[in-house]
């Protein structure tokens, strides 16, 4: 090691990769998946309707909480403390937090660095950029604020939970369960699982400790979060899909395109 008298000369750098498998497939799928979600999201937000089914109290997750003056009657469970923002649909209030949470999420970072920025597109496949500085400078240094988005994600998930509770609402006003209720329920479970499996959460509940043995409760929480954290990628996708799906379902019911399948009342 101390001997190296020869000069740096790497071997076999002429081609980008010698991988023979379909290494381009995962980044491509990621690219398509994320793009589809963004397109759907934008369309839905600018649609700015069909997000509230008063009969069963279904609120589309994209529009929760609905706190602007523009919200349809009944959809604002937390008051309307902002005026109608016109073209800016109600989601603009929470969207920055929700999107920020996902954008700075360690998993999504990996996903879009790889699939959108090709840095790198796959392991041992050369990236197309001439220089690279990582997350050391503005704007990427802001990724370090992820924990604040995590703090914000907890109330957001709580609001969605509230939405589910009130969605156990029958046509005649009492208790009721429809397919929509279940979809919202599954969605909120996935959202919670995604939120709690966050790396920042893992750090906050116990990861930052050096001596687990002195903090048995936090250690226990850390092991639970760690267990979920191992599936953070799967949860990220599952919750992304479920939130869009729940939204779509509510939209379809609200617009009258389909009727909710009622299981009980």
């Amino acid at each position: 090691m101390t001997a190296s008298t020869h000069h740096p000369g790497r071997a076999d750098t002429a081609i980008r990769t010698r991988r023979t498998d379909r290494w381009w497939l995962p980044p491509l799928l990621t690219f398509l998946g994320l793009t589809a979600f963004v397109v759907y999201g934008v369309v839905r937000v600018f649609m700015n309707k069909w997000y509230w089914v008063g009969e069963y109290q279904y609120l589309a997750p994209f529009f929760s909480p609905c706190v602007t003056g523009g919200c349809v009657p009944g959809a604002s469970h937390f008051g309307q403390w902002l005026p109608d923002l016109g073209i800016l649909a109600p989601p603009v209030v929470v969207l920055p937090f929700v999107l920020g949470f996902r954008l700075t999420c360690y998993y999504y970072r990996k996903a879009y660095y790889r699939s959108f920025w090709l840095s790198p597109p796959a392991c041992a496949v050369a990236e197309p950029h001439g220089s690279y500085t990582g997350e050391r400078r503005f704007p990427l240094i802001l990724q370090n604020s992820h924990r604040y988005f995590f703090y914000a994600a907890v109330p957001v998930a709580s609001v969605l939970t509230y939405d589910v509770v009130i969605a156990f609402h029958g046509a005649d006003g009492g208790f009721g369960v429809g397919l929509g209720t279940l979809i919202l329920l599954v969605n909120v479970v996935l959202i919670w699982a995604y939120t709690l499996s966050c790396h920042s959460c893992r750090h906050i509940v116990g990861g930052r400790l050096t001596h687990f043995s002195r903090h048995p409760v936090r250690y226990w929480m850390w092991t639970q979060v760690s267990r979920m954290n191992a599936r953070h990628m799967q949860l990220a996708w599952a919750s992304l899909f479920s939130v869009a799906f729940a939204d779509l379902y509510v939209a379809l019911v609200a617009s009258g395109a389909i009727t909710d399948l009622r299981l009980f009342n």
Binding site: K110, P120, C123, E135, I141
Partner: peptide
């Protein structure tokens, strides 16, 4: 040690 260079794309873990 340049931790900020890492963009957590996980190739180290993969290999």
């Amino acid at each position: 040690h340049g931790l900020g260079f890492c963009n957590i794309t996980k190739c180290c873990t993969e290999v």
